[in-house]
Amino acid sequence: MGTRLVVALLCWLAAGQALAAEPIRVAWRDKAPYHYWENGRAQGFLLQRARRLFAAAEVPAVFVERPSKRIWRDFQRGKQGFCSIGWYRLPERERLAQFSLPFHVDPPHTLLARAETLPAIRAHASFASLLGDPDISLGVVDGVSYGPELDALIAGSANRVVRVTLPPAGLMQMVAAGRVDYMLADQADWQYLRRRDDGLSGLAEYHFHDMPPGLERYILCSKDVSTQVMGRLNRAIAALSAQGGGQ
């Protein structure tokens, strides 16, 4: 074998090894208490779980915080070697990325309202009945999915649906101020925010028996991430779930 051919082959092998060793970039959005900044440090129970999973799977990864819109723009543009954590599984997302096994299951959403509004809400025997009341207003964070089942129920609701471009904390403040009658909240969001914002002390939570079950959250990866890597991640998730650490 000629010297030039040997050198070319060695360079090709070295390039392939470098590519294989390139860490995956794992994006997370600022969503307390799942993943967020506090005192200059990345915190959150789901972020820490994801770090453990990538380490257990022996998949090199660099975790970076990115806005939600940028994360989805990167998936739409076919960014390679790219994953993101903590998302619901929706049909439109399956066209852009591949999904791991679920690595967290949310409890059902809770209903938040002012104490003064609760009697009108409790007058309904079910959530389905409440959604049929045109005299009650429901606040919704625009552009955010509450999951396929709740999204469909909200779309078909007779409530006066008020869509706002605010984070959940901002909508909670609107409910507390009486600008909308009630909202649906992620229980983890609510438990985190209620301890940090005295302005939410006037809110009360209420649970209906027919509220849709909580949704599963996944790790999404770009289509180029190999089946071997996805398999290692899934085995790590299955092992963690078997140990009772997947909730």
Score class of each variant (00 low, 15 high):
86 G>V: 00
86 G>L: 06
89 R>E: 10
91 P>F: 14
92 E>F: 09
92 E>G: 04
96 L>M: 11
99 F>Y: 15
102 P>Q: 09
102 P>G: 10
104 H>G: 11
106 D>M: 11
107 P>L: 03
113 A>E: 05
114 R>I: 00
117 T>P: 03
117 T>I: 08
119 P>F: 06
122 R>V: 01
122 R>E: 12
124 H>M: 02
125 A>Y: 04
129 S>G: 14
129 S>C: 00
129 S>D: 09
129 S>W: 09
129 S>V: 02
130 L>S: 09
130 L>T: 01
132 G>V: 08
135 D>S: 14
136 I>G: 02
137 S>F: 01
143 G>H: 08
143 G>K: 05
145 S>F: 15
145 S>I: 11
146 Y>M: 03
150 L>V: 07
151 D>T: 15
154 I>L: 05
155 A>E: 09
155 A>W: 11
160 R>E: 04
163 R>F: 06
167 P>S: 11
167 P>W: 08
168 P>R: 13
168 P>N: 13
170 G>C: 01
171 L>G: 07
171 L>R: 11
174 M>S: 03
180 V>N: 06
182 Y>R: 02
186 D>H: 08
186 D>S: 07
187 Q>R: 13
188 A>Y: 15
190 W>F: 15
192 Y>N: 11
192 Y>V: 03
192 Y>W: 15
193 L>T: 13
196 R>C: 12
198 D>W: 11
198 D>H: 14
198 D>V: 06
198 D>M: 07
200 L>Q: 15
200 L>D: 14
201 S>G: 10
202 G>E: 03
202 G>Y: 04
202 G>P: 04
203 L>Y: 05
204 A>Y: 03
206 Y>A: 01
206 Y>K: 06
206 Y>M: 03
206 Y>P: 06
210 D>K: 04
210 D>G: 01
212 P>M: 00
213 P>S: 07
214 G>S: 07
216 E>H: 15
217 R>V: 04
220 L>A: 12
222 S>W: 09
222 S>N: 12
222 S>P: 04
225 V>A: 03
227 T>A: 15
228 Q>F: 08
228 Q>P: 01
228 Q>A: 05
230 M>Y: 07
